[in-house]
Design a protein around this nucleic acid. Sequence first.
DNA 1: CTGAAAGCGCTTACAG
DNA 2: CTGAAAGCGCTTACAG
Lengths: 342, 342
Amino acid sequence: MNKVTIYDIAKALNTTASTVSRALQDNPRISKKMKARVLALADELNFHPNPVAAHLRTGRSLVIGVIVPRINRNFFASVIGGIEEVAYENGYSVIFSQSNEDYETEKSIAKTFLMKKVDALAVSLSAQTTDYSHFKPFINKGIPIVFFDRVPDSLEVSKVEIDNYTAAYQAVEHFIEQGCKKIFHLAGPLTLSVYRNRLNGYLSAMRDHGLTVEENWIFSNAITLESGTAAVEKMIQINDLPEAILAAGDFSAMGVMMKLKSEGIKIPEQVALIGIANESFSEFVEPQLTTIDLFSHQLGETSAKILIEQLSQEISERKNHHIQFPPKLIIRGSSLKITKIN
Amino acid sequence: MNKVTIYDIAKALNTTASTVSRALQDNPRISKKMKARVLALADELNFHPNPVAAHLRTGRSLVIGVIVPRINRNFFASVIGGIEEVAYENGYSVIFSQSNEDYETEKSIAKTFLMKKVDALAVSLSAQTTDYSHFKPFINKGIPIVFFDRVPDSLEVSKVEIDNYTAAYQAVEHFIEQGCKKIFHLAGPLTLSVYRNRLNGYLSAMRDHGLTVEENWIFSNAITLESGTAAVEKMIQINDLPEAILAAGDFSAMGVMMKLKSEGIKIPEQVALIGIANESFSEFVEPQLTTIDLFSHQLGETSAKILIEQLSQEISERKNHHIQFPPKLIIRGSSLKITKIN
DNA sequence: CTGAAAGCGCTTACAG
DNA sequence: CTGAAAGCGCTTACAG
């Protein structure tokens, strides 16, 4: 219990703290014999160097900070899981905090993490965030920073995401192959480039196939279950149902599905449906939801690897990575009008 | 950028670090005038005391460690979300790690957290853990520790859970009210008291209603989707279907549901079904899944509150809390044989 | 109300 | 290959 320090070990071995410290770090300047003696005694006394003291001295905390909108989403939980795994393997711990989609909270967390001296930072932006200056101090201090999924467009930093433009584009093409022309899009908050890219992919695919998108075909800020339900209500109200709907997230797709079903509208026969995220529930529902995999775990692993690589480099030799995973459309029953499965 | 310290402030104000330190802590021994001057300058210089130095000196890290089997489950993500919220409000940060249901990993994380000097610890045990000695050092050092959901039965510590016995008991009674007598149970890993309690609740309810449970009515170690599917396969194989199934988790209930549906067996008409956890997907599926709410977010909040309370107390005045939330059966379509809704 | 001084437990430049 | 010494940036018992 009474904490053992390197001084206790030094005294017992008739040497100095310097030597003990070096021996524990496997410093080549220490003889094998001395190292063996130090390690043996450290082991016997169950000694572990106090990382806090080391941190104060070296400036390295071995902690990676993570900021997410909320942890209570399979997608974000899974990304954080990936980050934690890689971090742990490399001797780093993960400290995290939730912005709750709130800009002020995000700013305050960034400040806290800066004070707590995280060695590196991984962030997925809140839906409210349009100004990124709260991340500047990290960049200025040479603290590696990586954004994942919800990345800023106007900041020179490392980014890890999927190719959202192509993802939406492919979804629309799949609808078109299934014979759909009147295709609606439930877009997310357009403050975030993720959702702007999905919207653009949708628009381009429609245009490239000679389909004109009407104004009321696009619903904005619709990523919750409720907003999916509300969108369908509105369609029914003005008696304007599409042949297909691409939702910017699985939760709003789920709202769409539940509302359509409760109204007796057949999926995919009357309205085909595609979500984005591949949440676990997407294969539990009926019909199973066609969706786009976001490679959440790999997103996390890759983000952590970038940070850890940069931590091992001199500031001058670091470069920003911009990684885009190719999207993967997972075709299931909700979008198959022609080849019916399920 | 060039870090400001209390010495810089002291020098600029023609006073000493002691005074600056006390002023920043709002120590009553410092004059209001001096406090005002210190705070103004600190603000102007954008100074924040280095918590690492404070930690080395005071021994307080303002970090709470959390160990979960895995983060990639809505239940655990939600608990951690609750812990983080309360921690953040109280100036604490949350560091977490995943045991991946592995005992050795759990031990190793505990050791790491001890070394990293967390101020307090919240744990949900891995399914493999039957020995708790890796938590003893925390208890011995007076580091507050709380277990949630997957709590150890033979350790004098604070525990936060739901009354799992009653939960399962009520589920069985609900089945009986619906006219079921042949009721199967998919139990979880019985190393964990959570699952033993659920099994016991099931057994007691059956016995109290004069129903004899046969050996093959209970499937053990069945909390994954796959094990749910496998259980139904086995029932079909030996041609022995029940009137109702209580699964120890929503994921295995989902496996049961999918398999029954693919076999053309009607839920709840032929087999009624109840899960446990109230995962978000439970209301998305068809029929909607009757389940038991585990109050995940409150579990997290309560766990964090206990820790924070204890951190403010002398070791001698701390006492172990044992909190059991009353269970809440959420009745949906999958269990309603008589009163059909949905 | 304010100050001088020690110390938390390491690491590392400097010296030999 | 080993040691003596300074210092990371705070806090707080002791003194006045």
